[in-house]
Design a protein around this nucleic acid. Structure first.
Lengths: 365, 365
DNA sequence: CTGAAAGCGCTTACAG
DNA sequence: CTGAAAGCGCTTACAG
């Protein structure tokens, strides 16, 4: 009997009158065991209720078939969908995924995992700086910026931001909009990235559309407190959602969208349509506008980015450029498993956004 | 060097000119090692970038400090919150939790975990029937019905349904409602449980309130397809949300709520207020009513059960009896860890619902 | 205080 | 086809 009173190979071997090696071969269906002997061993194993110890197997193989996914904010629907896709893809290949919300990277050395996944490259960077230069588990991360260089080699699943922004603008142009604005958080790496992509494109279009020279008049930047810059700084200190805390949505992108809504209402932004930083922001934005009598899309059109599943839950389904988070997660998991199984995946893996039409954009024709 | 080219105790021992036993004692801060020797060992370990192999440690201790939580539907906000609470509580005690969405119980024997958590007792029952009678990892589950008897001992975190229903009815009575109806899925174990609790209480109140004898006129049962009885049958076959499937909210309670809304509109149900099976159902119900010109709470009052975090995202925050899913999850994790650490937790652990006021109940006084 | 040895439960190359 | 033995990387009771 094992340490906890569990049945081990040794018990089965003794009861079946064979060696542990034969039990191993019989149970694993590997190597040669005479038919009758094998059957007897299996029968005895079942009778004794024997289950191979997965820890011992892992020690032998140096593989756990378990992965970890770090995410700092599970209430963000995008993250949830990423995890969902990654989890199901991994499952198909016999792996399981840990979702770690605490992001205490120092614990990685205690976790029984073969690889580390991130749905956000800034988290991957933090991880690498904290422990990843010394602890060399393979890393796969989704990346918003294909030009990003990590301190050590990291496989990427690339979210094609240039295409996303262009698809959004193309869609709105196709609906007859000219003054196409942008709603973004005040600061943040990806806020700036999307802002630049938007600006580049709008500068190209400005003359044809007859827009003034100050495109920034079309931008709404959400005022956010110093403590809640979502994408860059919220990990210090880590966000801990307290059980029983009624306000635990307070740090979400949704609230950034609400603050953006307030800002918009106090401005004279001439946009007829906005692309929002993501769907969460879009819904927060819409909520404030509607509460103040500005109707979407009658008075103003709004698009999001992401394609969150909650679109179906809201009164109005937001028109959006879907990133297909499930697919991004699934690709990330597949790339990781390819690495672990020496299948040599591509180093950079591009994913495709697409427009999902909703009910928040007015056709001006 | 280890099998993967990693540094092991042996390498450190050789480089430091000591035995592996001393390395072990130095690294773990256990037993006696002369101060200078210990310092040299630590220095060498750091220089060689040595990290103890967690698998080997687990084999030795027969502990992984990892748990698994089975959930069949992560897009249900309640489940998400349960996981969130469990995960953070476990983290505080040095444990990590696997969230398994695939619910392929046969794989449990391959997972490197010390215990199994469920947020739903019907899932726990299925698990026990499938593998749990033979594979004896400890089990903790949230339970909707304190009288439930499992085929083997299982620690419970009890969701106090009698109190939930009574609190909801008390709240609505306090707001001057008399015809207090119920919105539930057509079938399902907990649908029936909550129905009975509602009926018992309403029968007591009927005379004082001047209600007719057929209380069932106040009930809306959602017609649901044969394939999507959420709480009892959806595991065969398991629900697999397909990446790229735009309709993957289709199986959610939200949709049950929408179907209930259709049903209500085609009935002459006299209720002035409804208690819905949960918040998801409430929001689906409200959405259909509003789309059809029946306003909440002006024309009809609606309450939910659960207290999901998405209440803050919707145009109207639903009035609800909160189960505090984070807390339920946290208690489940703590009970499990108490078991694993021989701290003898209570067998049944009651949790307390409370009313969260929202904007969907009309005060009739 | 330190090291050699046995052990955690498994796998596999080797000899027979 | 089968078993004894060495090994995966760690821990710990034991002897010195």
């Amino acid at each position: 009997m094992g340490i906890k009173g569990t049945v081990t190979r040794k018990d089965v071997a003794r009861a079946a009158g064979v060696s542990v090696a034969s039990v191993s071969r019989a149970v694993n269906n590997s190597g040669y065991v005479k038919r009758e002997v094998k059957e007897r061993i299996i029968e005895v194993a079942n009778r004794l209720n024997y289950h191979p110890n997965p820890i011992a197997m892992s020690l032998q193989s140096q593989k756990t078939r378990q992965l970890i996914l770090y995410q700092n904010e599970i209430t963000a629907p995008y993250n949830l969908q990423f995890f969902n896709g990654a989890s199901r893809a991994a499952y198909k290949r016999g792996y399981a995924i840990f979702l770690d919300l605490n992001c205490d990277f120092s614990r990685i050395t205690r976790h029984l995992v073969d690889g580390v996944l991130f749905s956000l490259d800034v988290l991957a960077e933090k991880y690498i700086k904290a422990v990843g230069m010394n602890y060399l588990l393979p890393i796969v991360t989704a990346t918003n910026d294909a030009s990003l260089v990590f301190p050590r080699p990291v496989h990427n699943v690339i979210i094609d931001n240039p295409r996303i922004i262009n698809m959004g603008i193309d869609y709105l142009l196709g609906k007859g909009h000219r003054e196409i604005g942008l709603v973004i958080p005040q600061r943040g790496k990806y806020s700036e990235l999307r802002y630049k992509l938007w600006k580049n494109r709008m500068e190209q279009e400005a003359k044809a559309l007859g827009l003034g020279s100050d495109l920034d008049l079309l931008v709404v930047r959400a005022e956010i407190g110093d403590t809640d810059n979502l994408l860059n700084e919220r990990l210090d200190p880590p966000l801990i959602l307290q059980p029983s805390d009624d306000n635990f949505a307070d740090y979400s992108s949704f609230n950034i969208g609400m603050r953006a809504g307030m800002r918009y209402l106090n401005s004279d932004n001439p946009a007829t349509a906005f692309i929002c930083f993501n769907d969460d922001v879009a819904y927060g934005f819409i909520r404030v506008l509607e509460k103040n009598g500005v109707h979407v899309p009658e008075n103003i059109s709004v698009m999001g980015i992401d394609g969150i599943y909650l679109r179906d839950w809201f009164e109005k389904s937001v028109s959006t450029v879907s990133i297909d988070a499930e697919n991004v997660g699934a690709v990330a998991a597949d790339v990781m498993i390819d690495i672990l199984e020496n299948k040599k995946p591509k180093y950079m893996n591009w994913t495709s956004p697409r427009v999902l039409e909703g009910e928040t954009v007015m056709d001006r024709y």
